[in-house]
Amino acid sequence: MRYGPILLLLGLLLAFPPIASATGLEFYTGLLTKLMIFALAAGSLNLILGYGGMVSFGHAAYFGVGAYTAAILAREGVSSAWVIWPVALALSGLLAFLIGAVCLRTRGVYFIMITLAFAQMIYFLVVSFKQYGGEDGLRARRPDFGLFELSDTTLYYLTLAVLAAVLYGLYRLVNSRFGRVLQAIRENESRTAAIGYPVYRFQLVAFVIAGVLAGLAGVLMAHYTEYASPNLLAWQQSGHLMMMVILGGVGQFWGGVLGAATLLLVEEILQDLTLYWQLGVGLILLLVVLFAPRGLAGLLRRRAG
C-alpha cells in the first residue's frame, strides 16, 4: 500500500473541523462524520462480501442492533460509554455468531435469502417493543466518556480514530494468513477444504468480526444522531450497504470506504438539487454497473496502472 495519499487524506481529515468552524461550514463536519460511520459499516460488509464471498443481505441487523443497544442502555440510565460500547459490540458479535452459525450451512442465493430472513426477524422483533419506541425509534442521549465531552467535534475525531484503527486492522487481517485462507475459500471452497482448512470455522469467524464492526458503526450512528431508528435495521439499509460495497468495488480494499463516501455524497448533492434525487442516484448506479464492472476502486486502479 502507498502511504503518501493515505497520510495526506488523514491530515486533511484531522485539519477539517477547525477550518470548517472558522469558515462557518460546521454542517460538513457532521456530514463527514456520517460518511465515516457508513464507511466503517460498508468496510465491515466488504470483509465478508468481498474477501469472503459471503453475500450477506442482512448486514443492517448488526448495524441496527449496535445502535439500539446504545440507545436502550442510555434509556435505562447507563451513561458510561465504557459500559455501553463493550455491551453493544458483544451483543452484535453474539448475534452474528448465532445467525452465521445457521446461515453458513447454505450457499449462493439461499445464503442471501436466509441472512435477509434473519435480519427481517430482528427488525420486527425490535419494532414490537413499544416501550423502546416501536416504529418511532428511540431517542438516545450521548454517553459519558469520562476523558472528554462528546460534542459534535469530538465525535468526529472519535469516529475518525475508530475508522482509521479499524481500516488498519482490516488491512492487516486481509493480508494475514487468515485473510489469505478466507480469499482462498472464496475462490475455491472445496479445494480449500481439501487442503485441510476448516472452511466453516474460518467463514464464521469472519462473519462475527464483520458483525462486531457493523455493531460498532451502529453505536457511533446512535451517538451521531442521538437516536436509534428502525430504518437502521430495515432491509433497505442492508441493500444500501451492499450498494456502497458494490459501487466502491467488491473485494477491493478501499471499496467500502470509497463506495460509502461516493454514494452518500451523490445522494446529498442530488437531494439539494432536486426533489426527484433518487432518479439521479438510480441512473448513476446503473451506469456504474454497465460500464465499471469492478466498481470505482477497480476503475481508479485501472487508470493508475
Partner: peptide, 17 residues
C-alpha cells in the same frame, strides 16, 4: 449476481421516481 442486484436496485429507484 451482485451486478444484477445493483443494476435492478437502481431500476427500482428510477421507476419509483
Amino acid at each position: 449476481h451482485l451486478s444484477q442486484v445493483l443494476a435492478t436496485f437502481a431500476l427500482i429507484l428510477i421507476i419509483n421516481e
